[in-house]
Design a protein around this nucleic acid. Structure first.
Length: 468
RNA sequence: GACCCCAUCGUCUAGCCAGGUCCAGGACACCACCCUUUCAAGGUGGCGACGCGGGUUCAAAUCCCGCUGGGGUCACCA
């Protein structure tokens, strides 16, 4: 039987980083085994589900390039099928009506806590005659869970996990309004969708036991489970927003590349020997559930940044340019014309190793497209002393006669210039950098000059007087 | 609180299942040096961990028990 995995988010918000990793693992496992990767939207909570959230999840997956197979399944649309299965269990005596009021349930909860039990519902309607039902109360349908013995699940990540059956109460299958609960819906959908491997967050591990019983009662073969550890914040606690529990589109907007995020998320809790930089092709080839770690991992922006820097360095120039131009237009408040794009293209080799995010790349690239006089950083402004201005004046005169504007020729000319005036190269190079780039840090000076071109360099030098 | 899970450098992890080759390897971060007009990138080196206590064994990061610490779950949410 071929493998079918699924990603089943509830559309109550964006696709957050933990969900993205769950999706990635499901996708990878399906691709690795040559199986199917299905997508199901668990929108049975009508109050909290929104169409905007569905869009956010789909676009997040698309941005991450995690393509799913077949149509998206909307769980709520299958509610009737789920209810039908509940009714089947009812006639088979495997489920029953419960007429408890919320108050009664609350009282039971209180008592269970006080007694240190986790069995919350005491099953009081389990064997009670429905004739005793209080009038006017719409009942819920509860599942008759096994009360003795224990249940063992051979989790593909966690290993064998056993829970005593008396720890689980009779869960609600159908609400009083007749709508199915999540527990019922997942089981029916996973079965109907032929899901063979349920790969999901650790937080579902305890659910797996109750679901396992449901499969059993329905006479179905339960899928294999793989509960992957959750992602924690840098402090070891639950991932919060300021830790990075953001939607994937936030990562896109911060200037991360999808392949970098994929690589990072993959290595967070999974490994293949000492491999760090892992292409998607390799990931598909190598990925397996047995190499998924059991402990929770902490989210670390430093490592993500480093990985992103690597992928920026190795990205194709054309693609980078496409990503960069909109950012620069926002930065500069003006469109990037063809000449600008050509200049950026020439500048890219010097820019790439100096940025870990596209935002930083745009920041660093902006000076190439500005008109003089450039805004100076404080450090750059300090470089423009009366003495260095004098050097730059003379340099401008020297350079105005310079025809060969190649990197090598410029370097030679600059070195000669410094030698002739008996100053260090840096004494003229740094002020020149300030005037040319507005900053004290930039790509190599001669490269900058060559990219900028003769006319632009001279123009920026001529604007020297504009800086006070 | 009850139940379940987890535990190697600051962080991500290799090693653990089939004990010795591990005075524990890689990556990020940090520090130093090299390269160098600046900042990066790159190169070289450094700092840095088997949570604690008991066993088992000739030998334990690796197996067993306890403790401690962390996490998850306990809804007519998913």
């Amino acid at each position: 039987m071929s493998v079918v995995t699924r990603f089943a988010p509830s559309p109550t918000g964006y696709l957050h980083i933990g969900g993205a990793r769950t999706a990635l693992f499901n996708w990878l496992y399906a691709r690795h085994t040559g199986g199917r990767f299905a997508l199901r939207i668990e929108d049975t909570d009508r109050k909290r589900s929104t169409p905007e959230a569905i869009d956010a999840i789909l676009s997040g997956l698309r941005w991450l390039e995690l393509d799913w197979d077949g149509e998206v399944v909307h769980q709520f649309a299958r509610a009737e099928r789920h209810a039908e299965m509940a009714r089947r269990l009812l006639v088979e005596g495997k489920a029953y009506h419960c007429y408890c009021t919320p108050e009664e349930l609350e009282a039971m909860r209180q008592q269970a806590r006080a007694e240190g039990r986790r069995m919350l519902y005491d099953g009081r309607w389990r064997d009670r005659d429905p004739a005793e039902a209080p009038p006017g109360v719409e009942p819920v349908v509860r599942f008759k869970a096994p009360r003795s013995g224990e249940t063992r699940i051979g989790d593909l990540v966690q290993g064998p996990v056993t829970v005593a059956n008396d720890q689980m109460d009779d869960m609600v299958l159908l609400r009083a309004d007749g709508t199915p609960t999540y527990m019922l819906s997942v089981v029916v959908d996973d079965h109907d969708m032929d899901v063979t491997h349920v790969i999901r967050g650790d937080d579902h591990l305890t659910n797996a036991f109750r679901q396992y019983h449901l499969y059993d009662a329905l006479g179905w073969q339960a899928p294999a489970f793989a509960h992957i550890p959750l992602i924690h914040g840098p402090d070891g606690a639950k991932l919060s927003k300021r830790h990075g529990a953001l939607g994937v589109e936030a990562y896109r907007d911060m200037g991360y590349l999808p392949e970098a995020l994929r690589n990072y998320l993959l290595r967070l809790g999974w490994s293949h020997g000492d491999e760090e930089i892992i292409s998607t092709e390799q990931a598909i080839q190598w990925f397996d559930l047995d190499a998924v770690g059991k402990g929770a991992a902490r989210f670390d922006f430093d490592k993500l940044n480093s990985l992103n820097g690597h992928y920026i360095r190795t990205a194709a120039d054309e693609r980078l340019l496409d990503l960069l131009c909109p950012l620069l237009e926002a930065h500069l408040g003006k469109p990037v014309d063809d000449a600008g794009r050509r200049r950026l293209n020439a500048a890219l080799p010097g820019l790439k190793p100096r940025a870990e995010t596209l935002e930083a790349l745009a920041d660093n690239a902006a000076f190439y497209l500005r008109d003089p006089p450039l805004p100076l950083t404080d450090k750059a402004a300090k470089l423009l002393t009366p003495e260095s201005r004098e050097h730059l004046e003379r340099l401008r005169e020297t350079l105005s006669g310079q025809e060969d504007w190649s990197k090598a020729a410029l370097e030679m000319r600059l070195r000669e210039f410094a030698a002739a005036r008996e100053i260090k190269l840096g004494a003229v190079a740094q002020p020149l950098r300030a005037v040319l780039t507005g900053s004290t840090a930039s790509p190599g000076l001669f490269e900058v000059m060559a990219v900028l071109g003769r006319a632009e360099c001279l123009a920026r030098l001529a604007a020297l007087g504009a800086y006070s």
